[in-house]
Design a protein around this nucleic acid. Sequence first.
DNA 1: CGCTGTCAAGAGCAGTGCTCTCGTTTGTGT
DNA 2: ACACAAACGAGAGCACTGCTCTTGACAGCG
Lengths: 231, 231
Amino acid sequence: MVEHTGIRARVRAELTGEIKAAARRQLATEGANLSLRAIARELGMASSALYRYFANRDDLLTALIIDAYDGLGEAAETADARYRRRGDHVGRWLAVARALRGWALAAPSEYALILGSPVPGYRAPTDTTGPASRAPLVLAGIVADAAAAGALDEVPAPPLPAKLRAELTAVAGQVNVPLDAPVLARMMLAWTELYGAISFELFGQLDNLVGRRDEWFDYQARSMAALIGLR
Amino acid sequence: MVEHTGIRARVRAELTGEIKAAARRQLATEGANLSLRAIARELGMASSALYRYFANRDDLLTALIIDAYDGLGEAAETADARYRRRGDHVGRWLAVARALRGWALAAPSEYALILGSPVPGYRAPTDTTGPASRAPLVLAGIVADAAAAGALDEVPAPPLPAKLRAELTAVAGQVNVPLDAPVLARMMLAWTELYGAISFELFGQLDNLVGRRDEWFDYQARSMAALIGLR
DNA sequence: CGCTGTCAAGAGCAGTGCTCTCGTTTGTGT
DNA sequence: ACACAAACGAGAGCACTGCTCTTGACAGCG
């Protein structure tokens, strides 16, 4: 368990990576119920040898899930970080939204793995909660910046029940984003919509309905920015 | 293929129903990759006998998918039909939204089947497009009623690119809902958000984040009604 | 009544996840 | 430099899967 930093550990890490790469490749064509034997075959090794690297199929799946969350989160973070005009909160929001969609379109099977229907019989370990929150935290950060800059419009919103409001306030404190409950609620709603938009497109719900996908997504992202009060 | 209405056809239909029921039961526990042998075992018959009723696993899955779409659509339709004050468009919207969520919570595995990540290797036949549009059509109908009654508020919205606008106008004509492009766009965005909200809750994305699920969903549904312009 | 189409059952094939055992390789502490 | 323990890959085997093919029984219609 301890880091031995030897040559052995190096080749082990490399082979582990190759296994995950092969698994990802298979994920794209065969879906979440990946075949360990097929992976082993592709790597030219015995199927039983895989168990030296992953205790079972779920373990391998967990590794893929964490990688996917990290990939999505990093896409969001770099998209925001690279955006020059930090005061243009709508621009940042749009850039991050596009990055999320772009990542999803580039790796649809990995997106489905983390944000699609849960794999039956698979229970996500707690290791995934950290990476999972990276993407929404980027969105929250943009809104928080706007709020701090006094650049948030007042927007009409349905009433927030007191107890729900209290819950949201607690969540804001827990993840350390300086947003009051109504704004956080709108931001979460917007994140929900973006997720729905990407999923609709990816899962085929838009087929024969909307052809101009880029424009349609941009329209939605802009609508959500407006709903939050970004300007 | 012709309806023979004989005794033979009756027992066949009954057994077909029992097979689907068993498959649904297994869907809830094991997920989309259902085991024909387990179904046959549950019904006390040989696994090979199932192939008299469904050509293969995908065929059985297709039947379940169509049933699920119909169930979701019917839940939406009856929820709207039962709502008394037809002029209260927000109320109808909320009732339908709650019905959609209620159906999903009652049959999470069936919801995942139709609106979750697509089953790998499975290609949905065209038979599913009809039932699939029932639920969103109910929502569109409410908005259309509001528009016809002149009960739609003017709401600010991002610009709609001309070509996208034309596409949406074509879609409105195709499904025969008298909505102009901007309103249809907002309605589709709202439907996307509701789907995202239900999926988030069902797929565990809200765990350790929002406890008061009913209130949170109502808030979102109300927000979407306001975004469309319902009052 | 007898033919014919429908039906269930069984064996069998190729594939799966996973376990256990068996030699071999390899890094490392002495 | 050497020996030892840990790590490793390969193979056989178990119980399971979807699916096909064949066989035999039975029931409905002319």
